[in-house]
Structures are given as C-alpha cells and as structure tokens.
Simulated scan of single mutants.
Amino acid sequence: MNTEQPNNPLHGITLAEVVEQLVAHYGWEALATRVNINCFKNDPSIKSSLKFLRRTPWARAEVEALFLRTFSN
C-alpha cells in the first residue's frame, strides 16, 4: 500500500509536534488568544491538549490551520 500524501502539508508531522511547535513559537497565553479553547487557557499542558484535540475535530482543524499559517513557507 502506498502511504504517500503529496497534497497533505501535514503529512509526517504528528499532532504532538504541531502543538509543541506552536507552544514554543507563541507560548500558551498567546496560543489561547489565537485558538479559543480551554485546554490552552486553564492549566495547559501538552498531554491535556492532545487528549482534547484528538477527540474534538473542529478544534484540531483550527490548531492545524494555525500551524500551517504560522510555519508554511
């Protein structure tokens, strides 16, 4: 089976890497202003954020879109 995804800009990047890079770039407080979700506002952590984002498709889509806007060439 061919797992290549040439049209997917997030191919090969895990959700954990996305969140970690955004936190390193913006910090939790600024990230919470850009993506209005409680897991970034109240006692934020990578673990709690990943748990929420994996269960909440709309929030994950917003975080991935912010990642692409921030780090796309």
Results as ranks from 00 to 15, higher is better:
70 T>E: 03
58 W>Q: 12
44 P>M: 12
62 E>L: 09
46 I>F: 07
53 L>V: 07
51 K>D: 01
71 F>H: 10
64 E>I: 02
44 P>H: 14
72 S>T: 11
59 A>E: 01
71 F>N: 12
69 R>I: 01
34 R>G: 11
53 L>S: 05
14 T>S: 14
9 P>I: 10
34 R>Y: 09
4 E>N: 11
64 E>R: 14
47 K>M: 07
44 P>R: 15
38 N>F: 06
23 V>G: 04
72 S>A: 11
34 R>M: 13
12 G>R: 11
3 T>I: 04
1 M>R: 14
42 N>E: 15
62 E>N: 11
61 A>M: 06
17 E>G: 04
13 I>N: 02
18 V>N: 05
5 Q>W: 04
57 P>S: 14
62 E>H: 10
3 T>M: 03
7 N>S: 04
30 A>N: 15
22 L>V: 06
47 K>N: 13
22 L>N: 09
17 E>L: 01
26 Y>L: 07
16 A>F: 01
37 I>C: 06
8 N>V: 00
36 N>Y: 09
6 P>G: 05
28 W>E: 05
68 L>V: 07
32 A>M: 10
33 T>W: 07
21 Q>Y: 00
58 W>G: 00
42 N>P: 00
38 N>W: 09
48 S>T: 15
48 S>F: 09
18 V>A: 03
41 K>M: 08
15 L>P: 00
18 V>I: 12
24 A>R: 13
66 L>A: 06
37 I>L: 14
32 A>R: 14
34 R>F: 06
12 G>T: 08
43 D>S: 13
25 H>I: 01
6 P>E: 12
14 T>F: 00
13 I>W: 02
55 R>N: 14
62 E>T: 05
43 D>I: 10
57 P>R: 15
60 R>F: 01
49 S>H: 10
61 A>W: 02
54 R>W: 03
69 R>D: 06
17 E>D: 11
19 V>C: 03
30 A>R: 15
69 R>E: 10
62 E>I: 01
46 I>W: 12
48 S>E: 13
25 H>R: 13
2 N>P: 09
63 V>A: 01
3 T>K: 12
47 K>I: 08
64 E>A: 03
68 L>F: 00
7 N>Y: 07
6 P>C: 05
72 S>D: 06
12 G>L: 04
41 K>C: 01
46 I>E: 12
